[in-house]
Amino acid sequence: MAITIIDVAKEANVSPATVSRVIADNPRISEQTKRKVREVMERLEYHPNFQARNLAAKSTKTVGVIMSNSTSLAFQNPFFPEVIRGICTSAHASKYGIYLSTGGSEEEIYQEVVSMVQGRKVDGIILLYSRVNDRTMAFLKDAKFPFTMVGRPYKYEDEITYIDNDNQKIAHDVVEYLFNLGHRQIAFIGGNLEFVVSKDRLEGYQQALIDTGLFYSDAYFIHDEAIKATGNKSIKELMQLEVPPTAIVAHDDLVAYEIIRYLEELSIQVPKDISIVSFNNHSLSAYVKPPLTSVDISIFELGFQSANFLLEKIIDPKAPVKHHFVPTTLIERDSCGNIKMVGE
């Protein structure tokens, strides 16, 4: 027979209301009483039904975390475990749990979010992406459901709380960094342009070329989906141009690792023959060969602050809209060389 709160109260010689307050960590209950009741709960193996308590309070004490892909695909990218670690750290401090999305397609993700909201399975939602013309974001906005975004929204920027890096600026900065090393032919391997982060980084790259007096060429821009589809063919064609690039800006460290492998197959050495700089500064980036120069985008902080912002909105639905850019740092390693030193 299951142990009930009444059994605990009887054994601890307190009222059921006192047990309930101990479970809620009510400050009005003395530490001595809390300790006594908790010892009885542990001895009787009583586990409070937090779900029932939360439903009664019209709160689930849970936040939904929505990824752009299914969990099986998302966790192949080191970005997601780290950003979720930041979310969990904030949520745990406020005694919240997290509900991870499992949808594999854009439609499945949308339906799952609708179910979360209409079924009141969570108190708020964090979108770990910003997609162009995103149906899910529009639904959350129209439903007036508490949510925050990791990434600048494509629309309604003034109405949505989000946290991000200044992706246009950091892309601009890495081009300037390469320019100052003497590079004038700088290629860009970009991400999926359905996502705002990819669009912003491409725009930052293009603006930097203009500001440094260089020219943009379509031949120097490759979509990372093309690399996934054709393997090293795209990189081979890039390096066989009449004027090949001396440097590549990669959208993500994972893409950079792949590029380095393809270049090795073509007997092109990094950084002797070409330099590479990337974004995200994954933990492996210091250990690949050569160690990768990458922009540290403070992934943990993105997750931590997105959860903080969401919890503020859950507590106070009238909390003002917030926008925050997390600082970034260029971590210089061995994948970029001064062009003047090439061949010396």
Rank of each mutant, 00 (worst) to 15 (best):
M137H: 02
T102I: 06
S115Y: 15
V83N: 03
S59K: 12
G104I: 02
Y110V: 03
E112T: 12
Q76P: 00
I125A: 08
S59F: 00
T89P: 02
R21G: 10
C88P: 00
S30E: 12
I66P: 00
V122N: 03
I23Y: 11
S115W: 14
I126F: 04
F75A: 03
G64Q: 13
L44N: 01
V117A: 06
Y96N: 09
E31D: 08
T89W: 09
T89V: 09
V65D: 05
R35S: 15
S94W: 11
A56E: 08
E106M: 04
A24Q: 07
Y46L: 01
S105F: 06
N26L: 00
V22G: 07
N26R: 03
K61I: 02
S72E: 13
V132D: 02
G104N: 11
P48A: 10
M41E: 02
I23F: 12
V113T: 13
E45D: 09
P27Q: 08
I109A: 07
V132R: 04
I109F: 08
A91C: 14
L100G: 04
D123L: 04
G124I: 05
D123P: 04
F79D: 01
A52L: 06
T71Y: 13
T71C: 13
E108D: 15
Y96P: 00
T136M: 04
E39A: 15
F80E: 02
G97L: 10
R38P: 03
F75D: 00
V63M: 08
G64S: 11
I66D: 11
E106T: 12
R120V: 02
F50R: 10
Q76G: 09
S70W: 08
S68V: 14
G64A: 13
L127H: 07
G64K: 05
T33H: 04
M137T: 13
L127T: 00
V117S: 12
L128N: 14
G64D: 13
A91T: 09
R21P: 03
Q51E: 12
E42T: 13
V113K: 12
A74I: 01
I125C: 06
V117I: 07
M41A: 03
F50K: 13
T136W: 02
K121N: 12
T102S: 13
N26E: 11
V113M: 05
S115Q: 15
L55I: 14
T136E: 03
Q32P: 02
T62S: 10
L100E: 00
R35F: 05
E108W: 12
K121H: 08
E107L: 02
Y129I: 00
S72F: 10
V114H: 08
V114Q: 09
T102Y: 01
R120I: 02
E106V: 11
K95L: 11
G104S: 13
S70A: 15
S105G: 09
A91F: 01
N77K: 12
T33Q: 07
R38H: 13
G97C: 05
Y110D: 08
N49D: 10
M116Y: 14
T136A: 06
F50C: 05
